[in-house]
């Protein structure tokens, strides 16, 4: 059975989706990621979807769910590398992926995750420290 591998890197979990997602695979990824966050105490999840050519409402929902579930376990989720055509299609479909952070590429995504975690660790000492490529609310 297919499974999407989850890599652990310091306080983060990295997922690179290299195959075409079908529903079962996306659901398994959701469950695996949430379990992994709980097991490892990871503080951030980075999901690279640069190789994903389509995201429909179901997969969009799963991505959103991962963000919300991870948040409940005190981890932030950043989705990186969305293809422009996928972004256009998602918005027209009516699914603007609210609730997850996004970044243009892996590098910026990592920076964003790091800044999020630092932000929480420093508490209210530095509220200005915001990255420019996150989308929320």
């Amino acid at each position: 059975m297919d499974r999407i591998p989850i890599l652990r890197m310091g306080p983060f979990l990295l997922v690179t989706i290299q195959v075409d997602l079908y529903d079962r695979l996306a659901l398994d990824l959701e469950a695996d990621l949430v379990k992994m966050v709980s097991k490892t105490g990871a503080q951030g999840i980075l999901i690279d979807i640069s190789a994903v050519s389509i995201v429909d409402s179901f997969m969009g929902r799963i991505i959103g769910n991962i963000g919300v579930m991870a948040k409940l376990l005190d981890a932030e989720t950043v989705v990186v590398g969305m293809q422009p055509a996928v972004a256009i299609t998602l918005v027209e479909l009516g699914l603007p992926l609210k609730g997850v952070f996004t970044a243009l590429n892996v590098e910026r995504g990592m920076d964003l995750l790091k800044s999020k975690i630092q932000l929480f660790e420093q508490d209210e000492t530095d509220p200005e420290n915001d990255s420019d490529d996150h989308i929320t609310e």
């Binding site: 050519s53 389509i54 429909d56 179901f58 293809q83 422009p84 055509a85 996928v86 299609t89």
Partner: peptide
């Protein structure tokens, strides 16, 4: 993938291809 092959064959642009395949994916589900 089959839908994509046909879309490429008639030289459909990438954005329209993505929209078509996403629509197809919704309907097939």
């Amino acid at each position: 993938n089959r839908v994509k092959e046909y879309a490429v064959k008639i030289k459909m642009g990438l954005v329209n291809q993505t929209k078509l395949i996403t629509a197809a994916s919704e309907l097939v589900r």
